[in-house]
Simulated scan of single mutants.
Amino acid sequence: MTHIEPFLKKVRRTIEAHRTGQLGGYRQKLSDPLAADLYGTADAVILLYTLGELPEAGSSEHQHLVKILQSFQEPKDGFFSAASHHPVHRTAYAIAALELLDSKPCHPLTGLHTVKSRAGLHAWMESLDWAHLPWRESHKGAGIYAAMVLAGEVDREWEQWYFEWLDQEADPETGLWRKGAIHNGAPLFHHLASSFHYLFNQNYRKRPMRYPNQWIDTCLAMHNDGQIPLKAGALAFVELDVLYTLISAAEQTRHRENELNSMIQAIGSHLLSSITALSDGPEDALFEDTHSLCGTVCALALVQSVMPERVTADRVLRKILDRRPFI
């Protein structure tokens, strides 16, 4: 049994320490200048939502969070500005954070209007480097969906075009995206992490995996071969990507059920051990980076949901991907 409250207290102290002089503003890293940035503020929203501690709608703090996030948007093209990540990733990340605040961007996403046609959307997806940079490129391939849908820029017909393309391009051998690109460059885990980003879009609309059994076979083989890059006592998104994928597959098929459950337990146990290690140190210890912290806290919410008997806590953590896509 792992008592996660010491870790969550450290998370709360970290969020508070990342506040800036701007009301509602947060910085991503403690070593960054004391000024609000997009990722620090969006990360704070995600963390507070997961903890069940977002300011109440209508409150001054809630309004300031919304205004700060909206302030990062460029009126001329609708993209959100930040010092890192691709414009589509930061735009989707900001809009997804605004959704947690029941808000939307102030300006239309005119810089992305070329994908509003079926041909434009498919050209966008075809342009990604699926073989050599699938993980990085999935920020664009999945982000285009989250940004356009959560901003209210497209209708269900457009979503159907998007999902039909994904269905057609699912790899029948591995279950992952994209067929013809899986064994031609990047490590297999990069394809799994990439596919996770498309999976949460599908789950948002309750669309099934096309090849769930093959997806499970792929994950089990990677786990048995040591291809999943888990690091002890470290903040990361790896556990979130893998656990979300495994849990989603388990909800759709009973294929190799016992082995799959054993893998979920193994990844979950690894995360709980890391949580214990990350809780150690001085009472006033903090985490440097809110972005990697988001990955671990969101993964912890998954572990609590599937392994409740292993977790002691004063609250049930919220799972943001059950509400809306993109992380």
Rank of each mutant, 00 (worst) to 15 (best):
L150G: 06
L133C: 05
A119Y: 10
R136N: 12
S117Q: 13
K76C: 01
L54R: 08
P134E: 06
P55F: 06
G152V: 11
L109Y: 08
D77Y: 06
A147C: 08
G175N: 07
V115A: 15
L112D: 06
A181M: 11
E53A: 14
H89Y: 15
H132A: 12
V88S: 01
A123F: 03
D171E: 06
L176P: 05
H89N: 08
R118Q: 15
G58M: 04
A142Y: 01
H139N: 09
V115K: 04
L133M: 10
Q63P: 00
H62S: 05
W161S: 08
T91A: 04
T50C: 11
S117A: 12
L69K: 03
S127P: 06
A82L: 03
I182M: 15
K76I: 08
D77R: 07
A82Q: 09
P55A: 05
W177C: 07
A119S: 14
S103T: 00
A151C: 10
L128M: 13
G180K: 12
Q70A: 02
M125G: 03
L128T: 03
L128S: 01
L100Y: 07
I68P: 04
K179Q: 14
G58W: 04
I144H: 07
T174N: 10
V154M: 15
D102A: 14
S59N: 04
D155W: 10
A147E: 09
K179D: 08
E126P: 01
Q168R: 14
G58E: 06
A147L: 09
V115D: 06
G180M: 13
T114S: 14
S117P: 10
Q70C: 02
S59F: 02
I68S: 01
A92Y: 03
E126N: 14
G111C: 10
H132L: 14
Q73N: 02
W130L: 02
S138K: 08
W130R: 08
L150Q: 15
D167K: 10
G52N: 07
Y162P: 04
D102Y: 07
M125Q: 15
L109S: 08
H62Q: 02
T174Y: 09
L101C: 04
A96C: 03
A131K: 13
Q70F: 02
E137I: 00
I46F: 14
H122K: 14
Y145L: 15
S138C: 12
K67G: 12
E153C: 10
F72N: 03
Y93V: 00
D129T: 07
G52K: 05
T50V: 13
W135E: 13
A83T: 12
G175W: 06
K104P: 02
W161F: 13
R90Q: 13
Q70M: 03
L121E: 11
H113F: 14
P105E: 09
G152I: 12
T110W: 08
E164Y: 02
W165T: 05
I68L: 01
A181P: 04
G120M: 06
G78A: 05
G143Q: 08
Y93F: 15
W135F: 15
